[in-house]
């Protein structure tokens, strides 16, 4: 993208958001609004009829038993599920009022605005720590001055609470870090491109408890700037970090997953509306 592009796109964001909310986009993002979303793999309906509002600058947790489609749903929020051949969706996902599945929408741009952190840490093994952080930036700006690059690396690594641990070995391979450090490196890599939303797919499931604490603490810091959606199997984790929780369930294998209920996290864990939810959160199944 060249400079002219940048200006026009920013301009249109502002214009559109102003029309809808009356405020500038950079101050208050609008979060994600999912309506009537069906997700298919080929003919198989994997997730049915999701309606959900994901509040900006908060943490939304998706919980539920294995195979209920929460990861599939998460991946559909930045069109990453399209990587699997035959995957498609019906319905709309609005980011700041625009449908990410609208005609002509470029998934490449969506994924810049909605970043993702995966279950297993996946820094690029052939790149150094610094190069890993810059991986997303390099895609867009052909020339990046040394000092600008250094600034981004430091800012992102500080943002991911990793700077102090790695500042002396930025040119060493990212694969040499511990699992928890690698995962925070992946978070630094994701926030380096300054997305609006950060999707996290069981980010702590491959980590030990101490690394998990570090990542959770980081999430709580990040929510002042980013809208975070996290899939987790760990209900304590959902209770500890999230503001709102959605409970997914499935009626049986081969059946589509669906949202049972979504509410403030305290309510879901203390006084849920649905019986299935209370059974799940109290550990009676799943």
């Amino acid at each position: 993208m060249n400079d002219a592009d940048q200006t026009t796109t920013t301009g249109s964001v502002t214009r559109m958001t102003e029309q809808m909310t009356g405020v500038g986009a950079s101050e208050t993002p609008d979060g994600l609004r999912v309506s009537d979303l069906n997700i298919y793999y080929g003919d198989f309906l994997a997730v049915r009829k999701v309606d959900m509002t994901i509040e900006p600058r908060s943490i939304t947790a998706l919980i539920g038993p294995s195979g209920c489609g929460k990861s599939t749903f998460l991946r559909s929020l930045n069109r990453m599920h399209e990587v699997i051949p035959g995957a498609r969706v019906e319905g709309t996902v609005l980011l700041d009022g625009e449908d990410i599945y609208g005609p002509g929408v470029d998934p490449v741009i969506i994924r810049r605005k909605i970043g993702m952190v995966f279950q297993r840490p996946n820094p690029f093994p052939t790149m150094s720590i610094a190069e890993n952080v810059l991986a997303g930036i390099r895609l867009n700006s052909k020339r990046l001055s040394k000092s600008a690059a250094d600034d981004i690396v430091e800012k992102s690594l500080r943002g991911a609470n990793l700077w102090d641990e790695v500042k002396n070995r930025l040119d060493q391979p990212g694969s040499g870090l511990s699992g928890g450090q690698q995962q925070r490196l992946c978070i630094a890599r994701a926030i380096a491109v300054e997305p609006e939303v950060l999707l996290m797919d069981e980010p702590c499931s491959a980590l030990d408890p101490i690394s998990t604490m570090a990542v959770e603490a980081l999430m709580l810091e990040l929510k002042s700037e980013y809208t975070i959606v996290i899939v987790t199997h760990n209900m304590q984790q959902a209770a500890r970090v999230s503001d709102r929780t959605a409970f997914f369930n499935i009626d049986g294998t081969g059946q589509p997953g669906y949202v049972v209920e979504m509410d403030l996290t305290e309510k879901i864990f203390s006084n849920p509306t649905e019986k299935a939810t209370s059974d799940y959160v109290t550990g009676r199944f799943g």
């Binding site: 990453m80 969506i110 994924r111 970043g115 995966f118 997303g136 890599r189």
Partner: peptide, 15 residues
Amino acid sequence: TPRLHEEASLALGAT
């Protein structure tokens, strides 16, 4: 190529 690395790249907005 590990799928994880390919997805990491795509999730950063790579073509």
